[in-house]
Design a protein around this nucleic acid. Structure first.
Length: 277
DNA sequence: ACTATCCCCTGACGGC
DNA sequence: TGCCGTCAGGGGATAG
């Protein structure tokens, strides 16, 4: 579900609500979403005071005193919600954090249970997932992106989705970025020239920033921390628009499958390069 | 190094 | 109405 702009929106929404709060008590309704045992999870986090909330790629990092951390990946349907303790608990809510001061609860809800929550104790090295993360899509420079693309023979779309190569992009923003840069998703990465890499870099940044401003994209079930719906979907030009005309050339937006993922392209604006040269 | 294919889960939707 | 197949903003494991 959430990609970089949605995760950034969530982080920004949680920050003012959580900074300075103490995690007083944790209730785990389903340990499926925890990376370790509920016992260990609670032992590490109960009593911790939240100091910082950040993002790395699509991971949410909640840092407490003494470098205790809660690291979360929402995968497809994970959500953080803030609710008064007495509010009815939705059946897909798996972890509840009582906060102090106040009467609010931070709730982790996840319909498909693909998301994961990990508690990192003081002095414990960062989990391997974070170490393997590639540069953040909003932090990488055009020059570095170009240099890194030249080392890869893979098709550009699966490469951009590979979080060890670049972190933050998901299916929506990859399709949108490639469309705006006029690059076909199956183009071999090392065949892109410097100008194409620059164009891709510029559009990717522009789209991500615009999407953050719009508070993300809601196609079906993404919601921000307060249940807020994103607004970027009205700016989408290919994603979820198959069968509709391209806004630039009028040709019909196609939906195909690339690397196992639904892929949206405009045949006019994103020519297939390896065929025609 | 890279691709293809499951798999993890649940729900929504279209066709019959 | 119900059943069945397919698909979904992600990513890990495994076989070729």
């Amino acid at each position: 579900m959430p990609e970089l702009p949605e995760v950034e929106t969530i982080v920004r929404g949680l920050r003012p609500q959580l900074i300075g709060k103490k995690i007083r008590f944790i209730r785990v309704r389903s340990d499926h979403v925890l990376t370790g045992s509920p016992r260990g999870f609670r032992r590490v986090l109960e009593g911790a005071i939240i100091r910082e909330i950040g993002r790395k790629g699509k991971f949410i990092l909640i840092t407490c005193d003494q470098e205790i951390r809660l690291i979360t990946h929402l995968r497809m349907t994970g959500q953080f919600l803030l609710a008064p303790r007495e509010r009815v608990v939705d059946p897909h809510t798996h972890v509840l954090f009582d906060l102090e001061p106040g009467t609010d609860q931070l709730r982790y809800r996840d319909v498909r249970k693909f998301g994961r929550l990990a508690a990192v104790a003081r002095g414990t090295p960062a989990i391997s997932l974070l170490q393997d993360l590639g540069p953040d899509a909003l932090e990488i420079s055009a020059a570095t992106l170009f240099r890194n693309l030249q080392q890869k023979k893979r098709a550009i779309k699966p490469l951009l989705l590979d979080q060890t190569f670049l972190s933050g992009l998901g299916n929506i923003y990859v399709d949108e970025s490639l469309y705006r840069a006029g690059i076909h998703p199956l183009t071999r990465a090392d065949t892109l020239n410097r100008d194409q890499a620059r164009l891709l870099h510029r559009h990717m940044r522009q789209i991500l920033r615009q999407a953050i401003r719009a508070k993300g994209t809601t196609v079906s079930d993404y919601r921000g921390p307060e249940g807020i719906v994103g607004g970027f979907q009205r700016f989408l030009r290919v994603y979820d628009r198959s069968g509709d005309p391209c806004r630039i050339c009028g040709q019909t937006i196609q939906k195909t499958r690339v690397g196992g993922r639904g892929t949206h392209t405009c045949p006019g604006c994103q020519p297939w390069p390896q065929k025609s040269g």
